[in-house]
Design a protein around this nucleic acid. Sequence first.
DNA 1: GGTTCTTCAATGGTATATCAATTATTTAAT
DNA 2: ATTAAATAATTGATATACCATTGAAGAACC
Lengths: 236, 236
Amino acid sequence: MEKMTEKGTTVDMVVSMLTERINKGDYSPGSKLPSERKLQEELGVGRLALREALSRLNALGIIETSHGKGTFVQNRLQSSTIKNILIPHFALSDSKRLQELVDARAMIESEIAGLAAQQRTKADIRRLEMILEQEVDSSTPSELVAYLDLQFHQELALIVDNHFLVLMHEALTAHIRTFLNGFVKSRNNPVEVLEAHRPILEAVKRGDAEDARSLVRLHISYSRRDYENFIEKTKE
Amino acid sequence: MEKMTEKGTTVDMVVSMLTERINKGDYSPGSKLPSERKLQEELGVGRLALREALSRLNALGIIETSHGKGTFVQNRLQSSTIKNILIPHFALSDSKRLQELVDARAMIESEIAGLAAQQRTKADIRRLEMILEQEVDSSTPSELVAYLDLQFHQELALIVDNHFLVLMHEALTAHIRTFLNGFVKSRNNPVEVLEAHRPILEAVKRGDAEDARSLVRLHISYSRRDYENFIEKTKE
DNA sequence: GGTTCTTCAATGGTATATCAATTATTTAAT
DNA sequence: ATTAAATAATTGATATACCATTGAAGAACC
């Protein structure tokens, strides 16, 4: 038994062994892990310890198992994984914590615009301008304007290509939405959107990260209004 | 068997049962869960399924088990948990992803200063001024100045009291540090620190969030420099 | 009486065996 | 050749037994 050199329990050991192999590339993303029987034999542990370790990796979004098929290495961290982690710790009841998440989301959206201003190409700007033109077009129905608002911010995220920020933003948005549902109906005032997007695009165009950040921050102040409305109503 | 009404596997079912109980307050933070034997009987599942579910909750930082004592509900999300989630997905080898984290950390530090400017009290400002006075004092050894730099930012974080931001910042810092180790020696130029902290404090003092954010952003540009040095050296 | 030691019960940790459910592969029949 | 059935491989789940750690109650000792 040389397991004493390792740290913690058998499960901890197996977890670090597997993560190491995955990080080293022994098990590449998308590929299939050896079967549980082979793994437990190979690592010299019982099946229970192995399955507990796999459960942990599953919770962290590192692997995914299908009954009858096998266990596969996930290639990308899913925003749902982050969301699952947030749920128990930033729950509905705690309004303080909910506000923290709203603030954090505003921060990320602002940062994305700032980074976009630094990294945008001509093609990026062209795409943003096309979206804006559609928004300005008076023949565009208001429902579509709401969609284009979202599209505008997603396009910015695409330019930045920061996996971490996009992931966090997705997780926060999904998490917050479940709580603030029903308070987001009238927030996409078309006029407001139009007045906001033009200067943001201009800032991105001329590469002014500072300006882009503060303009977005102003634009999405509705997040805070939504939140305050929510708190008001729950107090009644 | 009415389990067909539930979704997914038995383990999924047990996980959602337990998280629901925890969120409802049946098992309050810090309290001890029933023993595994009791739980498996109570929930009507095998011990392996139960333990796999507990493993998942453990990975997510929701519970903590100690051999011989029992299983306890964690009251706070630990930054180490977030770090563990980041490790396999934002690893050393991928310089692109590493830069994403460096950018994200800069964003958070900047945001913390901005929020501090909005929420600071007189007492907060007094504490920050005390730190600054120590830094300015020429009799303060340079090692202490480096410490006070950290202290300054931690004090800002304390003012904001945003659990989420502080948590993410801790996790990102810890994760980045393991990779950039050895490249952080000379970054805390005392003169540079002094020149930066004074205007930041002034912005916080007069509640100018915009200014506070951009000043911090400027101040911590060393993060990017560290990163670029790191990339250079690893290319050799 | 107080301190130390032993023992024991509770609890989590591990291992093995066994069966069920699902999927993929091979084989057989038409 | 196509389809259907049998077979194998794999994960899902349970039961049972035993080990390891912890803490507390009780015994032994001074």
